[in-house]
């Protein structure tokens, strides 16, 4: 019996190794959201600029919902893509400022440019939990009925945009390509 105790660490370790092994198969870049094909969760929050905002204020066309934060270095990498999308008016982008502080968020937008229609301020991370956010950056594709259609975890750069989002959007728009 006492000898068995000494084998416990081995058992615990291999159980853990199996989990880690499984973890490698989880595609962290395309985590399935619980909310795919479900409507956006209800929310009543303020924007980063202090205005009240609810589901009604979301664009009534297909849009991107980007989870970002001023602490998030990868967000800087994907930022130029969103700036371009906003400039060229390809698709509206709504931001969710996730687990950040208002002052820092405002500064960050000031510093790097603001591609968002507005950014929902989610200081507590509560809205992020409702959405099933894993961490910033993450981007959701939401259709004109407010239903979440696609989720991309991590940086959305030009190649991700081309290879994942353009086809997904084309499909939503009924085969009409951008």
């Amino acid at each position: 019996m006492t000898r068995f105790v000494f084998f416990l660490p081995v058992i615990v370790f291999f159980a853990l190794a199996v989990l880690l092994w499984q973890g490698l198969f989880l595609d962290t870049k395309a985590l399935p959201s619980m909310l795919i094909d479900k409507p956006m969760p209800e929310f009543a929050l303020t924007t980063v600029d202090g205005e009240e905002v609810t589901n009604v204020d979301l664009p009534d066309q297909i849009f991107l919902l980007n989870i970002w934060g001023s602490y998030c270095l990868p967000c800087l990498i994907e930022h130029p893509t969103f700036m371009r999308l906003a400039e060229e008016g390809e698709i509206p982008v709504v931001g969710v400022n996730y687990r950040d502080r208002q002052g820092l968020a405002v500064n960050w937008l000031g510093e790097n440019g603001n591609p968002f229609e507005f950014s929902i301020l989610d200081e507590s991370g509560r809205f992020g939990i409702d959405l099933g956010v894993y961490g910033a950056p993450e981007t959701y594709l939401v259709d004109s009925d407010g239903v979440i259609r696609y989720r991309h975890v991590s940086v959305l750069d030009e190649s991700v945009w081309r290879e994942e989002f353009i086809p997904a959007i084309a499909e939503l728009r009924g085969g009409v390509s951008l």
Partner: peptide
């Protein structure tokens, strides 16, 4: 690439399997 973070290097699952192998042999 198991967890996304500020520090994460460009991820590649084949590296993950390899390191997990090292982990299993050394620690296990």
């Amino acid at each position: 690439g198991l967890l996304t973070s500020v520090h994460a290097f460009a991820s590649d699952p084949s590296r993950g399997f390899f390191i997990l192998g090292i982990l299993a042999v050394a620690i296990g």
